[in-house]
Design a protein around this nucleic acid. Structure first.
Lengths: 191, 191
DNA sequence: GCATACCTAGACCGAATGGTCTAGATGGTA
DNA sequence: TACCATCTAGACCATTCGGTCTAGGTATGC
């Protein structure tokens, strides 16, 4: 799981426990595949708390959980490119970090966003939200690319290609139950 | 939708109608997001027929539907590389065909396999099945690559990269509700 | 002390879920 | 005609679903 720095592992409050449990379960079993009862059980929260913190219920929680995961991903992107000499090096670090993350979680979790968001109840809002999150990842990556010397157009293209590839590789990795494909990306793209 | 050549558009029998409806709905709303009632209504079949043709019920149907979609994809791969002068040309045709397919269906369907299979009831069997299907696609693509002159290792790598990229691009295309990303793949990889 | 806002707690509900079961229609064969 | 396998038909069932509602606890301010 992606743990953003702003949320430690200590016993969190009810709201945070709901978010992390929901994020984990949605990634593992999908939105419709996860029941409220399961989320409630894992986060040791009663139903009343859920509907207090997330008045719109399940869909509300899913959106917030996706944001939380997204935040973690942005932090990983930043950490990967922070000390990189060029874009390829940063991208390589990025892939390795993700592969490690994949292995850490019994290698089953879906790409952070797609499963959470692609079968939401209301296609419109969920799709838009997923789009925003993915776009943010690409934008952030492109920003690092520019800082490492690429022209705007090249940076955008490199960032889009990298994230698309990671997205697809993550899917294949899950099907194969192996992070190998993710680790192979740098060789594919820059080798 | 991917329509394999072996199944025309004329009024098919109950079993085939169940498969096509299930495939469409699972791709649109996911496995758990689609109810049996919905599939039954769309295919104008009673419950008895479903459990006659697919004794194991929903999961059985999902597996067969995935196979059917997979068959269609293999035919598209073959058609794309049949008259290609080199691998890049075949891959370009492949991407264009998929983009057209994406546009044809109100641009919402998920990548053929991932959504159908990633939130199945039994992780083991479903994951394995998805893996088999994806591997078949890559194998078939690699075969065409070899016929077009690539060495075995290069062919495998090129096929894996292409299919990974398509997988990811399809996801992003769905989030953006636009097939543009899919069309851009050839420029990214071979341009 | 009291009051107030915030949060927890879980009983309860109608609707929808996947799945089972029996009855009947249908077509081929003798 | 009788017979039999194949398939259609849908009533029916237990369970689970997401969501509502009321009541109780708890912290903070006066």
């Amino acid at each position: 799981m992606v743990y953003p720095a702003h949320m430690g592992t200590e016993q969190a409050n009810t709201r945070d426990r709901l978010i992390t449990s929901a994020a984990r379960l949605f990634r593992q079993k999908g939105y419709h595949g996860t029941g409220l009862a399961e989320i409630l059980a894992e986060s040791h929260a009663p139903k009343g708390s859920l509907y207090h913190h997330f008045p719109a219920g399940k869909s509300d929680l899913a959106l917030v959980a996706a944001d939380w995961v997204s935040q973690g991903m942005l932090e990983i992107i930043d950490a990967s490119f922070a000390d990189a000499a060029d874009f390829a090096e940063g991208a390589t670090t990025f892939c390795h970090k993700l592969a490690k993350l994949f292995d850490l979680n019994d290698s089953w979790q879906s790409c952070p966003i797609s499963t959470i968001l692609f079968d939401g109840p209301d296609n419109g809002a969920f799709r838009t939200h997923a789009n925003t999150i993915l776009t943010n990842w690409i934008k952030r990556t492109s920003l690092h690319a520019r800082e490492l010397g690429l022209e705007k157009a090249d940076a955008d293209a490199a960032a889009e290609l990298l994230l698309i590839t990671i997205q697809g590789a993550w899917t294949l990795a899950r099907a194969r139950a192996s992070s190998e494909v993710i680790r192979r990306i740098p060789r594919h793209l820059y080798g």
